[in-house]
Design a protein around this nucleic acid. Structure first.
Lengths: 325, 325
DNA sequence: GAATCTTATGTAATCGATTTCATTTTGAAT
DNA sequence: ATTCAAAATGAAATCGATTACATAAGATTC
């Protein structure tokens, strides 16, 4: 004890400026002497704040999320907030359990990366939540991410500008807003180029294996395609690998484009042409918005979109005149 | 309120069996009616337990850690524990901040995946800690992982068994126990095969770029090498890519072997021959041990090693008689 | 039916930090 | 030196769940 009351200790630690220099020094000295550390539980209880925000994602191992996470962490750390990561694994029960953290006070707010609306009643009243990357359908949850429709439009236009006409789209999993947004952008660009009759939506998915399967589908049903725009990078790599296994040369005979620009996109052979998302910035921006909510700032109603860009590498080129044969 | 005291509510929720069926039902009814949720802060304060364990790792984005994490999570979830992830980014300051969670009561114990000893005094007294994967030098922290010396020995023996003689080792970063253990296993296998004079430790690192740089080193200084055993998969991929860029064919002219068996090892071309670590089991085992500590079981003194295995894919083959030229 | 033992519940203290309110100290102004 | 405002501190209530202890209700035995 430094000869002062606990009240003064608390003040010295939380708002050093309202305490006289003399006692402040005494308190800090005692703190470092004893190795005292504020008890978080008591603080949480009294303040009715946990100083923690919950990040909910479907799969921690997915490299797509890692940069977003770093962005979130950066801002959270600056603001002295802890982040608690909840891995849903795509399971509703896990999701529900994770949301419990908002009701029992373990977290003050949440960032939602799994694109699922919290079931009715599971979301505590007035708890700030922001969705990232994947919009949540039919909900008024504020959103931060990439304008997927626009980005897919740009990607498709790029392929068109190379001279491609028969461009297929390997779409993501059904019931996912990313899938719909990206398909819409693709379809718009195709229509605008007068290629309505070339619009081909190939059912695919987001995994490497999905891409391989979709490649066989393309070869079987759309053999005239000279380019495929895939819903994400992983499926694009699967698509390419399967095409190569079948003896096709990418991009000479068929161009393949991805979406996301994951770290591996530039290591894969051929290096992947793709749509770059500003993942770090998305994370930062979302976290900043959540901070605003936590200090009772008003919520924006329209989604916040961050810049995307087309990254041209070696998986796309001008088509052979005849298409591949 | 269900007509009972708060004490009874607490009992009904925490140990349903010591409460009469009638009141138990009444309490549960009231709970689901009101959507009541136990306040974690108060519970933590009173119990002097957070029900949280801290997982400290250097880089959340590293795919090597993801499977370990899933294993940890599985066991933790079963035991009704929350896991808090701390990302050090390799920075000491971050590390210190993260350890603070053990002293302020936010977490009850920790799993250490960064291979760094907690600085003196920063580790709260009597807090259980287990190191995973990377041993912590000069410390008595219990350990769970792969026997790296043995695994590297097995890997090297596999290359020897293919007929290789001039086998270089691209070692990991200095000052890392993994680096030393793996080099030791390599050296032991080489010596045992009468190849002491062929032992070549090439400075490398764990990243793709490190592997590329090390490849140039090998070409420049050890042109007789017919095989390279790399410290991990990522550097092995970099090594292969650089060799390919220089016009060599892997594995025909030179074999390259990795370590870890990360997800990408089987997608990379050529598919990577590597050492598989039971990462999920390692995570599970470590978490189980931590649970034991938390319930005052004694700690094991010797490290717990889980099975590893050699996964043969396409980046290794028998050497050309003459080595590459 | 009384005595005894079990089981179920309530009362009240407790965990540790924060904060309102009251009190004391300091400093400035006259 | 006196007065008054401002600044610094302390006392005590509070957050919500748990639990030792006390008491009440119920079951069991004779």
């Amino acid at each position: 004890m430094a000869g002062v009351s606990t009240a003064t200790v608390s003040r010295a630690l939380q708002s050093p400026d309202i305490v006289s220099k003399k006692t402040r020094d005494a308190v800090f000295a005692a703190v470092s002497e004893t190795g005292y550390s504020v008890n978080t539980a008591a603080q949480m209880l009294r303040r009715n704040r946990s100083g923690t925000i919950l990040v909910i994602l479907p799969d921690i191992a997915n490299p797509f999320f890692s940069k977003i996470l770093s962005g979130i962490e950066e801002v959270a750390t600056q603001a002295n907030l802890t982040i608690l990561i909840g891995n849903t694994n795509g399971e509703d029960e896990r999701f529900a359990n994770i949301l419990e953290n908002l009701r029992n006070g373990r977290a003050d707010g949440a960032l939602l990366l799994n694109g699922c609306a919290p079931p009715d009643g599971l979301l505590a009243e007035g708890v700030p939540v922001i969705s990232i990357s994947e919009r949540v359908n039919n909900s008024d949850i504020p959103h931060v991410g990439t304008n997927n429709e626009e980005a897919a439009y740009d990607a498709t236009r790029y392929l068109v500008s190379l001279g491609h006409r028969a461009i297929a789209h390997a779409a993501g999993p059904d019931g996912n807003t990313l899938t719909e947004d990206r398909f819409a952008g693709y379809a718009r660009a195709m229509a605008e180029a007068g290629l309505d009759d070339k619009i081909n939506r190939v059912p695919c998915g987001f995994s490497f294996g999905d891409g391989q399967r979709a490649a066989r589908h393309v070869l079987a049903k759309h053999a005239d395609a000279t380019a495929v725009f895939c819903a994400n990078d992983e499926s694009a790599m699967g698509m390419i690998r399967c095409l190569q296994d079948e003896g096709y040369v990418v991009p000479d005979q068929i161009s393949v484009m991805g979406f996301d620009d994951v770290p591996y996109a530039s290591i894969f052979q051929p290096e992947l042409t793709t749509v770059h998302q500003a993942r770090n910035l998305i994370g930062k921006q979302a976290m900043r918005m959540l901070l605003d909510f936590l200090s009772d700032q008003p919520m924006p109603v329209s989604p916040t979109f961050l810049e995307h860009s087309i990254v041209v590498r070696n998986s796309t080129s001008e088509p052979l005149d005849s298409g591949f044969s």
